[in-house]
Each structure stands twice: as C-alpha cells, then as structure tokens.
Design a protein around this nucleic acid. Structure first.
Lengths: 374, 374
DNA sequence: ACCGGCACTGACAACGTTGTCCAGCGGCTA
DNA sequence: TAGCCGCTGGACAACGTTGTCAGTGCCGGT
C-alpha cells in the first residue's frame, strides 16, 4: 500500500542491541494458539477453582485463601492471562476513559493542553482517547460520536464547528462534556476559555501606550470564536483610545503562511502603513516575525504583539512581546471540571474564563516613527 | 479537591454567544432516564421488529425492506440510540483502536509524530488511545498493559525502559507492536528509528570541516538508545578525522536546563575551551542557544549544531544548523508498518532506519578562532 | 391451485466479565 | 457431641452486541 522508505533496512549498525535482544525470547513465550487469549475460565480450570474466585483474585477482592490465591496467580502467569477490559466495561457500564477532541496535536498550543488533560485523567485512573478534528466540523462530529459509541465517561472538546446539538442526546445520557478554548454552539455545556477579549484589548492598549495609532490586526477565520473575540478586543482598545480603525488594518482568514504573509505585506506597504501589528495566534505571529525579518531594516522597526506565547520568543531580536495563555492550565481546569461532573457535581453549566498575561519582550515596546503630523 | 482558579467565572462578557446558546436545548432532549442508554432491544420494541433487524439496519447489512428500515431509523433517532461499541468489540474480537505510548505529548518532537500515527489510524478506521510514559519505565509498562487489557489491535511504543519482555505474552497473543525512535529491549520486535549515529557523525564532521578541533558533545542520559548512538557518531567522526576526544568535552545526563547550562558553561570556560558544540537533542539545543546568547560576545562566536530541527531555528542569529529528523515521517512509517502487520504481513521483525538531513543555517559554519598552534 | 424458492425476519447462543446468591465446610460454643 | 455461625468457593444470570439458523410470507411457474 504505502511505500516505506527504508534506506538502511536491517543494516543493524548497533550490534550490541541486536545481540542482547535475541536470546531468551522464544523460550519464554507460553505455548498457546496464536491470536486467542486465555480467559478467566481457562485460568479457573488450570488452577482448579471456580470462575468467580479468579475474578476475585484479579480484582483484589477479599474472601480468598492465600493458598488459593497463589494457585490462581500461578495459573495467570503461566497462561499469560490479561483481563479483557471490553467485557469488564460492558458489565460495569463505566469505561474509565475520557475522550479528547482537538484541532491538531502537532500544534504546539495543544501539546501541553493534551498532556495536562492526560495527567488529570491518569490521576483519576482513566485513559485518554484522542483525535484531531483538523478544524473540520464534520470530522469533529464523527470523532465525538465514535467516542460516545465507545462509551467514554466524558469528553473534552475543542470545537471546530458551531452547532453541537448532535451532542444533546449523549449529554442527556450522562456523557459529561467540557468545551475548551471555544464555547459550544447551540447547546448548553461547560466551557473553559482564555480571556481572548481582555488579552487582546491589553495587547492593543499596550501598543497604543507606546505611541502607535495605526495598528494592524491579523487574525484567524472570523467564524472561530477566539478570533472573533480577539477582534472585538482590538476594536475595544482602539475605540477606548479614540482611535479610528481602517478596514485595511484588519485581516481575518486562514492562518496559512501565504495568506498571512500577503496580508501583512499589504498593511506594511500601504500608503499610510501600519506602525504596529497585533497577531491573533501563534502561527500568525511566527509568520509575521518572518515577514518582518525579511524586510530591509526600516527607519523605525515595526512593533509586534502576538497572542499565545511560543518557545524562543525571548531569543529573537527583538524578543517578541506576547499575550500568554497557559494552555496546560486550560486543559487541567477543563479536566478537573469534567471529573467533578463525573463525580456527580450538578448545577448549571459553567463558563470559566482564565486570565491572560502580557509578557513584554521588546517587540511591543518599539516606538512608532516620528509622526509627521504632531 | 483541586482548586479551580476562576477569576471571571460567569462574567459572560460575550452575551451574543450566551444568548444564542440558551434556547431550544431542553426541549430537544428526549425524555429518558438519565444515565441509561437505549439498546437495540429498546429500538426493536419501539419499531416493532426483531433485535437482529435493528442490528442489520445499524450495520447497513442487506436484507431489510426499505419500509422496515425507515421504521427502525425513526425509532433510533427518537430514542437517541447509539450502538455500544464495548459490546460490539467483545463480540467481534477486534477493537479498531491502536495504542500509542510516548514520552511526553507536550514535547514538540512528539506532536507531529502522534498526529501522523493518528492520520494513518484514521485511514484504517481505527481510533488512537495514547499515553505519556514521562520517561518512566514502570509507567510505560503500566500503560502498555492497560492498553493490552483494552485489547487494542496494535501498539506503537516509544520506549522508556530497556526490558520489554513483559510484552512477549501480548505479542504472542497477536498484539502487533512497533517501536519508534528507540529499539525494544530484550524482545524481538519491529522498530523504526532515525539514523542517530549517521546524523551525529555528519554533524560533527560538518564542524570539523569548518576547522574545529575541540568539539563538545552535550547529550541525553546514556541509557537512552538515541543518546548512546549519537555519542557513538560523535566519537566516530572525531576518530575518522584523527582528532582526540577529551573527557571534559562530553557530558551526558538529564536534559533539564540547569544541568545543560552548567555543562556547557564548564566546557566553554575551560582552560582549553571547546570552539564548537554538538547538542544531542532539541531541548539541549535550545538551552545551549540561551547560554551562548547570554555570554558576552567573544572574539569568535562558538559554533553549534543541534540534533532535531525546531521551529524558528532559522530566525535566530545566527540561524541554528541542525540535523533534522522528520518525526511525522517516523510516526507514519511506524503506523504503516503496524497496519501492514495487522493485515497479516508476516516475516521477521524489521528494523527500519530513516535518514537524517543536515540543514546548515550559520551556527555550524562559524570558523574557530585563529589557532595559536598552527 | 400447488409447490419451490426467495426475501425478509426473528429466536437464540455466544463473547468474557462481574454481581447475586446459595452451598459446603470449618471452627466455636453450649 | 451437636448445632450454629462465618467464611470461602462456585453456579448462574446479565451486560449489549453479532453470527447462525430456522421460520414466515409471498411470488412465480406449471
């Protein structure tokens, strides 16, 4: 099917590892039909006890003589028995697993979030099943419903779509659901958000405080909640400072480098160019940094503030001023809330908003060029 | 239990969203006992058909009258029925899910890898269950066995430990297993690796070609396979060039910034300081970049090559020369191999080694200071 | 009008586990 | 020594689904 590139297949440069790998493997493998696993019944037969006794031993329930327990344990290791959790889940009704649906695991923003959710899940003895929606509402729904079919106990969702009514039956059936980063659409559910509006207002106010009047905003697709909120924060800061907003200063759309590059260049090359840029998320920020770095050094460098912190932002020159949101904290908070719900916490759906933090590093503190019309 | 920080709880700044969220939710929720889901039996009763007919409709099997199918579909939507995959799995034996165990999802190296594995799984109709081992062998084993208990069809493992004999019974029982980034220990299994040895040799040869003779190596814990391989590559390049290696030029250990910082500083401040550094992975590289940035500008800047590419490496000044390995390709290759095994591909365990690529960006091309002993 | 055959439907067992309940057996007390 | 109590162990049903197989009704052909 797919062609595996394999330039050095089996070259086995590392003889040491290969050598101590070989011996002792086959001999340890218990003799058993390939692909068929032993069940408790097999263990019971081998240990000469009843089925339930094996169950008791496996689950550490009381009421088993030490001697019997030993016999059962021996049978278990001899057969290589491992409890079938599918059957257990079917019987018990709880799966001890939660689902996480996010946009893209490869995005550095979601890695820590995912990890934080996993840590909380682990603390509650649950496994994490996750999937990427690739920002596609249909794929999100498909994934969420697949997870529901697996009977996950709860869901943490970073929504791609805007209509989550399809979740209503699931939620009614007891699947705890927490939305993160963006709120649910057309359904009443818990949500944990960053303060996109406030953070953006802070960012733009910061630029204004450093003397900028023509500030560009490069944001994500306007349909995305955080993008809309950040745009709102931008407008709020501008209007609070009594500054006009020119249409050409705002560009919303996909965050692929080409579009962002074009939009930023247009703003910078306009007749009345912007003197500062506010980038709506980390992908945009990185592209803008590249654009600015490629431009011939202007008289006054363009100021920049980005939403989302990113690694090495402090090592660039100048360091990039950002609005930091703690994605791990976002995940942790959401997962905590989820397990609180699973433990029976009732009440109205809550909306938690986590604060953002402005980290000045230089790029946001650059002054605009001397104004020809003072 | 855990205290949720919630500075703006329910402040509901965004009235628009709240408004269009509220209506229409409760009325759509079907009347049903909370926490109990309808089963095929319920659907069959409501539709006035037999159990198996519902099963047929749900699975799109032929042999159902359009009229009957319609009745069943109506009952399904009316009740909010969703097939219980736990029961399905128990019955069918295959779970259509694979497990991924890696070190840390928050590490930028593993994000793309994880995403690639997920994409392949998705293409095969499988879900991905993942867990982080946090580089702890016990936790790795615990996770892997939990996944086996879930009867995942296959496993992709980035091993933390060195003894995977505990997997032998599982593999014998038919759980396909592919190791990534590092080979399995004491068990014969498929592995997909990057060419750590070759890449490191290239890196160090590159530095040597630019005139360096005293080159430091900052690596990960020597127990980690890739770290050992990279060290071996370092030694190979040095000895191929006829250069001696001073003990003080090699430092292996945890990659926390403090240790790396201390080790790098020691090498740079020694009586005969190194003129170039080779960093054994991306975390180390970043710390070294910081260390070098903080030092007062020396007569000749210290050269640097890092193993693993990282975002923005090209935007630093100078750009950081790296040995790039394609972590997504690593994941894709491993997942492809896994599904090939699941589709019945037999044969000896394979070891695939993917090539690395040297990307010169400036930091590795810096010449050493003029040599006082020519 | 009868019969064979076909298309559709449904009863039932099984997957592997856990909860319920009862039987057996030991020791302890009267 | 007999009776009772408590503890251990096992038989059985149930979880919700799918595969097997048999049964039903209807159609067309003769």
């Amino acid at each position: 099917m797919l062609d595996i590139p394999c330039p050095h297949d089996d070259q086995r440069r590392d003889e040491r590892t290969v050598t101590d790998t070989a011996p002792g493997t086959a001999s340890r493998t218990p003799t058993r039909r390939y692909g068929t696993r032993p069940t408790m019944k097999d263990v019971a037969a081998r240990a000469g006890v009843g089925l339930k006794t094996v169950s008791r031993v496996v689950n550490g329930e009381p009421g088993v003589t030490p001697d019997t327990e030993r016999r059962v344990q021996e049978a278990i290791t001899a057969l290589g028995f491992r409890r079938n959790d599918s059957a257990r889940i079917l019987r018990k009704g709880r799966t001890a697993s939660i689902g996480l649906v996010l946009e893209d695991l490869a995005d550095p923003f979601y890695g820590p979030l995912s990890r934080a959710v996993e840590e909380v899940a682990r603390a509650h003895g649950a496994l994490l099943i996750n999937g990427s929606s690739a920002e596609d509402p249909e794929r999100e729904q498909e994934l969420v419903l697949a997870l529901c079919a697996r009977r996950v106990d709860g869901l943490v969702i970073i929504p791609a779509g805007h209509d989550h009514r399809y979740l209503a039956p699931e939620m009614a059936a007891g699947v705890a659901t927490v939305f993160v980063d963006r709120p649910a659409g057309r359904v009443d559910a818990d949500a944990v958000l960053s303060d996109s509006f406030g953070g953006s207002r802070d960012a733009v106010a910061h630029l204004i405080a450093h003397g900028h009047r023509r500030i560009g905003f490069l944001g994500d697709l306007p349909g995305i909640h955080t993008a809309a909120e950040r745009l709102r924060g931008y407008h709020a800061a501008m209007s609070e400072a009594g500054l006009p907003v020119h249409d050409a200063w705002v560009s919303l759309g996909p965050t692929d480098p080409e579009r962002v590059r074009a939009a930023a260049t247009a703003m910078l090359n306009a007749a009345e160019p912007v003197t500062a840029l506010f980038a709506g998320n980390n992908r945009v920020t990185v592209t803008v940094v590249r654009v600015l770095a490629e431009r011939p050094a202007p008289a006054a460098p363009v100021a920049l503030v980005g939403f989302d912190d990113f690694e090495l932002a402090d090592l660039l020159s100048p360091g990039v001023t950002v609005i930091a949101q703690d994605s791990a904290q976002l995940g942790r908070t959401a997962a905590d809330l989820l397990f609180r719900r699973l433990d029976g916490a009732g009440g109205e759906p809550r909306r938690l908003v986590l604060p953002t933090r402005l980290i000045p590093r230089g790029s946001g503190e650059l002054p605009p060029p001397a104004d020809p019309t003072p």
